[in-house]
Design a protein around this nucleic acid. Structure first.
Lengths: 248, 248
DNA sequence: CGTGCTATTGAGAAAAATCAAACGTGGTGG
DNA sequence: CCACCACGTTTGATTTTTCTCAATAGCACG
């Protein structure tokens, strides 16, 4: 299970006029299991919009009255602590649902790392849809279970692995996140800063930077341009992530 | 959200002859929203049993063909890494569901810290029940969302807090876990070892031990007996957990 | 009454954080 | 269009926290 992306999505045969929640035309999100009639029904309940990079989808503590489905873009979910430190809870990709949780207020900030397009739905309405379409609720449960598994995996990474293992794990996870959604771009877009990555892995930005430098020197990765990544030695990074070897 | 226990349970009016899944007579788990007819239905699908302390409910990698509901006892979920290190993913309490996840194999060991009693159900049958009783599926989704929030909270604790803050957070979380399930026993049973706690918090057992000693010296907690805990200064521990003060 | 865990305590080592400085670079405005 | 500025990144020196290794002590259980 890859902590970077929570939901698993299977490609679907038909290509329908992009209907609604979590479907960037590829029908890969929450609506994936629905039939045409249901999709029409749902379109009327939800609203699409776009936002620029670095803007906030919502803030920690805001009333959690809306859920969002990512059509395009990458979202960072993060909590700010009393002493100013930050923990990134996860990154979310197209097809993922953001903002649907157990509590009445959002438990973290959601910030766009890239420009993005979304589908917004009132929580109340989404709950009604879930009652009406049990396959949709099933799908949401499966997405939630996948996200839980990913978060537990991330807990292992942060709790018990060395700095190099954490960074290796992040890099492979990023690649895996793209793989799950279809073809892997080459090079991979990597819109997160060293600071974002550090806050995700429980490390400082300096440690992340040093580790990137070391990985580049070792030719395990390269950064052909700003915010572009190419994984050159998947094998070694995997061993490093697992702690089978502890190089550097 | 308390990372120690994932599910929130509301007390219920009627006290029925203990029916099935996750109901230690208190009807607090997955079956909480069901009516009498449904409960009868479900009883026939599930099987009860008990196990002694320190035994395994299942092992990481086992075929995940059964889910378990905890009637009594405390369960530790943990992953073993290649280098022998261990990460405790969470502790589970009566009313919680264990072993129902996204993947075909269990992603962690489940070990009883105390003697426990359980309700076992084939995954296939549980899935059928979920289709038959949408309120049950809804309940499972809510439990999953709560568990996700708790795990994210734990990620913050492990990723960004000091050793003392982590231990303080654990102690308050333990108390909160009991509070959620009714009256808080005094003193609190704390069946986990220093090593279990360390593996939960991403610390060594020595660091946990030292921190406990310091907290006892400061009179913020006491251990009136082996594996018994009393929280004496909730206030200070809370400030410490939040990083508002960094004592010691 | 041993014996095997679990816990405590100490000393030293190591990993990562912190503090600090300089460098690139992308974006903005003159 | 170019210069400048803010921000992200890199790199180095030093400090701190926590880990590791080690030895002892306390208990529960057989």
């Amino acid at each position: 299970m890859n902590p970077l992306d929570a939901t698993r999505t299977a490609a679907r045969d038909a290509t329908r006029p992009d209907p609604c929640i979590g479907c960037g035309g590829r029908l890969t999100g929450l609506c994936q299991p629905l039939d045409a009639a249901a999709l029409d029904d749902i379109s009327s309940e939800s609203e699409r919009f776009a936002q620029p990079a670095r803007s906030l989808l919502f803030r920690e503590g805001d009333q959690a009255s809306r859920a969002f489905s990512i059509g395009a873009g990458i979202v960072k979910l993060s909590r700010l602590l009393a002493d100013g430190k930050q923990q990134v809870v996860g990154f979310r990709f197209p097809g993922d649902i953001v903002g649907y949780g157990a509590s009445a207020a959002y438990p973290y900030d959601a910030e766009l790392l890239t420009a993005g397009s979304f589908c917004k739905i009132e929580r109340r309405r989404l709950d009604a849809l879930l009652r009406r379409y049990p396959v949709m609720e099933r799908r949401l449960l499966d997405m939630c279970l996948a996200e839980l598994a990913a978060t537990q995996e991330q807990l292992v990474t942060v709790g018990r692995r060395s700095a190099e293992a954490r960074v290796a794990s992040f890099l492979l996870g990023l690649e895996e996140a793209y793989r799950r959604r279809g073809a892997v771009p080459d090079p991979l877009p990597m819109p997160m800063t060293r600071s974002d990555i550090g806050d995700f892995l429980g490390l400082t930005l300096e440690t992340v930077s040093r580790t990137f430098t070391a990985f580049k020197k070792a030719k395990w990765i390269e950064e052909p341009a700003h915010q572009k990544l190419r994984v050159l030695d998947r094998e070694t990074l995997g061993d490093l992530a697992e702690g089978i070897v502890q190089d550097l």
